[in-house]
Amino acid sequence: MKQVYSVPKSLQPRSTHYCPGCTHGIAHKLVAEAIDDLGIRDRAIGVAPVGCAVFAYDYFDCDFQQAAHGRAPAVATGIKRSVPDSVVFSYQGDGDLASIGAAEIVHAAMRGERITVIFVNNAIYGMTGGQMAPTTLVGQKATTAPFGRQKEHCGSPLRVSEMLATIPGAAYVARVALSSPGNVAKAKTAIRKAFETQLAGEGFSLVECLSTCPTNWGMGPYEAMSWLEENMIPYYPLGEFRTPEGGPNNA
C-alpha cells in the first residue's frame, strides 16, 4: 500500500497536552515537517517559551532550551552565536513575544539574527487562563478585559508582522492562519521559507501564525476557526510582509 502520510520524524510519537481544537498541534507539525524536509533535525535547536508551548520540547525530537518569559530571542541569539552551524528556532506566543518580550524580538530582528521565530498569535493568554494579550482585538473579552478590550483604555492591538517588517534586519516576515486546509498549506510553505532564509544566512525570519484558543475564547473548535477568519484576519491580514528578495516594505 502506498504511504501518503506519516507523522514527521522530528516530532516525538506522543499526544500533546494542548486543549481540543487548539492549533498549537498544527503549528508543531508544520515546524517538524519543515525540519524533516530540509534535513536539519541534527542541527536544530529549539527554544521554548513561557506560555502554553512551554513543553514544546516534549514533542520535538531535537535539542531544546527552555527560556524565560519573552526572552526566547535572546536565548536563541546566544545559541546561534555560539553554534553558528545550528538551525535555531524559537516558538513563542503573543504574550511572550509581543508583550514581555517586545524588546527582545525587535532587537533580534534589528541585528538580523539568523534565527527563525514561530509566533503563535491567538489573541489571548492561554496558559495563565485567558487574560488580555497585546494582540487581543478591540471588543474581545478576556478575564482582565471583562467588558471587552477598550481602545481608550489600553490601545489597539499590536500588528507584530507589520512592525517587524519595517526593520532592515528582518529578512522574512509572513503572517499565516492555521484555520483551513488551504491556509495551513500556505503556512507550511511560509515556515519552510523562514527556515530556508536562516539556512541561506539572509537574516531574521518570523512567521506569525494566527491561531485559535477555543478554551479561553469560550467556543467550540469549529466556531473558533470561524471566529478567527471573521475577526482576526480582517485586522491581521495574511501574506508576506518581507522576503529576502524584497517584500512590500523593503526599502
Binding site: 527560556a67 524565560a68 526572552r71 536565548v75 546566544g78 545559541i79 552565536r81 525587535v106 532587537h107
Partner: peptide
C-alpha cells in the same frame, strides 16, 4: 562580543550560549 538591548537580554544570551 555582542552588545545586547538590555541587561535582561544579555543574561538570557548568556543562558543560550552556556546551554551550548
Amino acid at each position: 562580543f555582542l552588545q545586547a538591548e538590555s541587561e535582561v537580554a544579555a543574561i538570557n544570551m548568556v543562558y543560550g550560549a552556556a546551554g551550548t
